[in-house]
Design a protein around this nucleic acid. Structure first.
Lengths: 234, 234
DNA sequence: ACAAAAGTGTTGAGAGTACACCCATGC
DNA sequence: GCATGGGTGTACTCTCAACACTTTTGT
């Protein structure tokens, strides 16, 4: 214990909590917004469902830890991730003090391949509206992530990140409708999304399916991420 | 070290980082938006300025730790605080791994009384546009906080939190102008802020000053915090 | 009466919303 | 030729932005 330094400047005199990252992984599966959960095997909360997570290694950034936890469960790298909030109530983990930095991730369903060797009964995709009881404070974390997702959808363009690289406008609109939980007008949706200039035509058309083939679009990587919205002031 | 539990379920097998909270404290002083800084005395970064912070105690929530750090420096409790972001790059503190949960706080200047016994040369209010070099990654944290503050001002009603309990509409408008860095139209500002129904008249008028006395307003505690903005969808 | 700040309405432009029909393809 | 989903334009409403003069008080 240092005597030269004032106590509140010296990390070594303070007890240290454990730090984890937990990731709320969203995907669109079977026309529903679903969340990836893992069945816990060990106590506490053995046999309960939880969101994937990991302890933060000493030489690893939080972002990297989150991406690692995500890749471990889905096999997917190069995914949209965003830090959500840090949950640190003293007794959220009954074993010891554990502070968790929560992230949320949007994964296109076609990119997922679950880890080989993991028992399928251990992981599952659950509709956001029909979640089982969750371990720790994970219900609160998922709730928070879902709110943030809906919110972001309204003023930015993250919706694409749930779709394959190329997609039709109808597929995109359906994704928005599923997440926002309301129907959108087809003409207005198209005008708005196209005038935001965040998409480009691929020139290809979708072959499969009935009816007239649809134009395929792709996200413009050079597009500005945040779509400007109406501001309260000025 | 446990053998029964899989390693990634057992906190005890992982090295633990130190966790701090750091608070970006904003106030309006002399018609400028200023940030409270503290001069570090100990290494590392001795004699450099830093934002106030504290280690998180084992039985204390993050929010409580932030409020405590804030009260220690300003003597103010009952202040608007909000969790900002968690910074955790492995080498942000040269001594050891320190993860910091950053908060920002809005303090009415008239409520501040600096801690007795603290040397005045140790703390100072700095205009956001003229900050000295800061310790650690604190410049990044302040930058992030400032962006968030401007952003929040545009779609919510946090502006009041920088003013005394009662204030005139001109004072409120001036606060918005200082933070946003642009002039606002008086009539439009008043119409907008009044139609948001977040203020109530006190019935009193401001006596001091030249010219016609202004009505005094107060924030309506029952007002909804978020003012609805135009949404991208639908 | 004059200086100083408070307070108050209207108009034009742009964005949002509601709404219905023709088009391309596969079977 | 018909079933299926894709693609398109217009009129109304509402919100935002720009703009100048009258009112109340102190000296």
């Amino acid at each position: 214990m240092s005597v030269e330094l004032p106590a509140n400047y010296d990390p070594s005199v303070f007890e240290r909590p454990s730090v984890t990252v937990d990731v709320v992984i969203f995907s669109l599966v079977e026309d529903k917004l679903k969340v990836l959960l893992i069945k816990r095997q060990a106590a506490p909360f053995a046999n309960m469902w939880a969101i994937p997570g990991s302890f933060v290694k000493m030489n690893e950034s939080l972002e990297k830890a989150a991406v690692r936890a995500l890749a471990d469960e889905t096999g997917v790298t190069d995914v949209y991730t965003e830090q959500l909030y840090t949950f640190g109530e003293p007794n959220r983990d009954p074993r010891t003090r554990v502070i968790t930095v929560a992230y949320f991730a949007l994964v296109p369903h076609d990119a997922i391949h679950h880890k080989v060797g993991r028992d399928a009964s251990e992981t599952g995709w659950f509709p956001i509206s029909q979640l089982p009881p969750l371990a720790f404070d994970h219900a609160e974390i998922v709730e928070y992530a879902y709110r943030r997702l809906r919110y972001k959808l309204e003023y930015s363009s993250v919706g694409f990140r749930l779709l394959p690289d190329v997609f039709t406008l109808t597929e995109l609109q359906t994704a928005y409708e599923i997440i926002l939980g309301e129907e959108l007008d087809k003409r207005n949706f198209r005008r708005k999304i196209l005038s935001a200039e965040i998409l480009e035509e691929t020139g290809e058309k979708k072959k499969e399916g009935e009816g007239r083939p649809a134009m395929l679009y792709r996200y413009r990587e050079d597009a500005v991420a945040e779509v400007k919205t109406r501001r309260l002031f000025p």
